[in-house]
Design a protein around this nucleic acid. Structure first.
Length: 139
DNA sequence: GCCAACGTTGGC
DNA sequence: GCCAACGTTGGC
């Protein structure tokens, strides 16, 4: 059974718009053990919310996993880090800002709110649907 | 193995 | 630009 996740990115570094343009990308540069452990649990077909930190601070769209965790192939990378491949699914008609996430009772448990520095985190099916509805995505 | 110091991230 | 949260590092 597929899981749902939230992936955070700095729009200056790699934006969802760029992902839409590329259609798919390797989600690399995660350098946090907790985030890495979540990355390893991600499976092909899992759906992800894409969140922009920094200036946007909003969930901007969804993506689908096309390859589960594999070692970062960059020889410069020291240590046991992994990445996954994702393809763009759809952009939200209306990006859902952090302030809205915080103001929504159903989303009180979001890890994003409790632990803002985590860059890869699980979300529940219900949270995924709730955020999708707020963003105007058709399920 | 503990804890203080320090660095980084991200929101305001 | 500041501050809070949290992770990492290094001394003991």
């Amino acid at each position: 059974m597929a899981s749902t996740w939230l992936l955070k990115t700095e729009p200056d570094t790699y934006s969802f718009a760029q992902l839409l343009k590329d259609r798919k990308t390797n989600w690399n540069d995660v350098r946090n053990y907790q985030a890495r452990n979540f990355l390893r649990e991600i499976k092909v077909g899992d759906r992800c919310l894409i969140y922009h930190s920094g200036d946007d601070k909003a969930v901007v769209g969804t993506a689908v996993v096309t390859k589960s965790a594999y070692p970062d192939p960059d020889p410069e990378v020291k240590g046991d880090w992994v990445q996954v491949d994702v393809k763009a699914e759809k952009p939200f008609a209306t990006p859902v800002p952090l302030s809205t996430l915080k103001a929504t009772a159903k989303l009180k448990g979001l890890l994003l709110i409790r632990q803002s520095r985590l860059s890869v985190m699980p979300v529940t099916e219900e949270e995924f649907k709730t955020i999708g509805a707020l963003g105007g995505a058709s399920a």
